[in-house]
Simulated scan of single mutants.
Amino acid sequence: MEALNMQNETLKLAAQRRSIYALGKNVTESQDEIASVIKEAVRVSPTAFNSQTTRAVITFGDSHDKVWDIVMETLRKAVPAESFAGTEAKINGFKAAYGTTLLFTEMDTIANLKENFALYADNFDDWSEQGIGLAMQNIWTVLAENKLGANVQHYNPLIDEAIHEAFGIPTSWRLRAQMPFGSIEAPAGDKDFMDDNDRFKVLK
Rank of each mutant, 00 (worst) to 15 (best):
K25C: 02
V42Q: 11
A35T: 14
V57G: 12
G61T: 05
A78W: 00
M72A: 13
T10E: 08
A121L: 02
E88D: 15
D122R: 11
A78I: 11
S83E: 13
E129T: 12
V37H: 09
L113N: 08
K12T: 06
A48S: 13
H64W: 08
T74Q: 05
E129M: 13
A89N: 08
G131E: 09
F84S: 08
G93Y: 09
I58F: 02
A78R: 14
E40C: 03
I70E: 04
L102A: 01
G61F: 13
F60W: 07
Q52G: 08
E106A: 05
L13M: 07
I38C: 05
V67G: 04
H64N: 03
K95F: 03
Q52D: 13
V44C: 07
S83M: 15
K39I: 14
V27F: 06
T100H: 00
A96H: 06
I70K: 01
K25S: 04
L119H: 14
N92P: 04
R76H: 07
A97G: 10
T105A: 03
N8W: 10
D32H: 14
A22R: 12
D32I: 06
L119E: 12
E29G: 05
E88M: 14
N123W: 04
S36M: 10
I20H: 02
I91T: 06
H64S: 03
K39P: 04
Q16W: 12
S19A: 14
T100Y: 00
I110E: 02
I20C: 12
K12F: 07
N26G: 15
Q130W: 12
F94H: 13
D69V: 02
K66R: 08
A56C: 07
Q31S: 14
A121M: 06
M107Q: 06
Q7F: 10
A78Q: 15
A56K: 02
T53A: 12
A97R: 03
I20E: 00
F104M: 01
D65M: 07
T54H: 09
E9P: 01
E9A: 14
E73K: 10
T101F: 00
